[in-house]
Amino acid sequence: MPAIWCWINTMRKTMQGKAWHKYLLSLPPMVYLLIFFAAPTLIMLFASFRYAGEYGGLAPWYLHEEGRLTLDLTLENWQRLLGTDIYLRLFLKSVGYAVMTTLICMVMGYPLALTIARSDRKSRDLLLLLVILPFWSNFLVRIYAWMIIFSPVGALTRMLNGLLDLVGGGPVTLMYSPTAMIICLVYVHLPFMVLPLYANLEKHDLDLLDAAQDLGAGKWRRFWLITWPLSLPGITAGSILVFIPVLGMFAIPDLLGGTNGIMIGNVIKQQFMESRDWPFGSVLSIVLTVTAVAVVLLGARLGQGRGGRG
């Protein structure tokens, strides 16, 4: 969605400048986005006002003998969403997971990104490589690996329970717990926080820190008055990149969340794949998309602050 706005903006500017070759260059991505993003979004919006078909999917369009087309449009699906608080609570729970994951990624990713950005050139490349190393193996494979680690007979659980036993605590299960989900969500999304933050921090002019120190700022004030505000665009970008995928995540709750661990993404997937209720699945998807867009807009506004000048 933001990509489209960005493109429209660019196009408006280019049309004013009459630089048609630029417009031509952005044509292929525009066509791609039209076909695979804008059109499906409109279809989804349309589907949310339709009835579900008898055997799943959407109910057929009725073509009467005289050639008249009847569209059976309904608000039923939207009423179903608003009629109960079950979906609202699911949304809030998902937002809660997304906020929590984003905050933990920020707290853990910031020092990491700062350390990498301030280390010498040689170790910088190595450290960056280590950050993106997990991408070399498949996402699902890594989650299965976590299932082994978290399993009741796994090393981590055993060690933890052994330690808890010493202090008299009862045994705990990690598998199928919110803790397991958060750990895994953070693990998967940490690089998405670290990389934009690093890209921002790496560009900081270190003379500014010298100047601040010269003018009387100690270590903490140098961080909070110079480095932090200048890194706000990086924090915003990283947060958006973590928040949005976590909000719609279904694979990790599916595999690690257990029966109580489902998020809104799981319900959407259920509607399309298992219940085959496409109209209601569309309703939930639209709400999720709108939430995500709202977050991006909020983030863009925050990122536009003075920090954007760094």
Binding site: D210, A211, L230, R306, G310
Partner: peptide, 14 residues
């Protein structure tokens, strides 16, 4: 004592 830096080092966000 204070320093004037070669690139002035003015804080861009202030």
């Amino acid at each position: 004592l204070h320093t004037i830096f070669q690139n002035y080092a003015l804080f861009p966000h202030m």
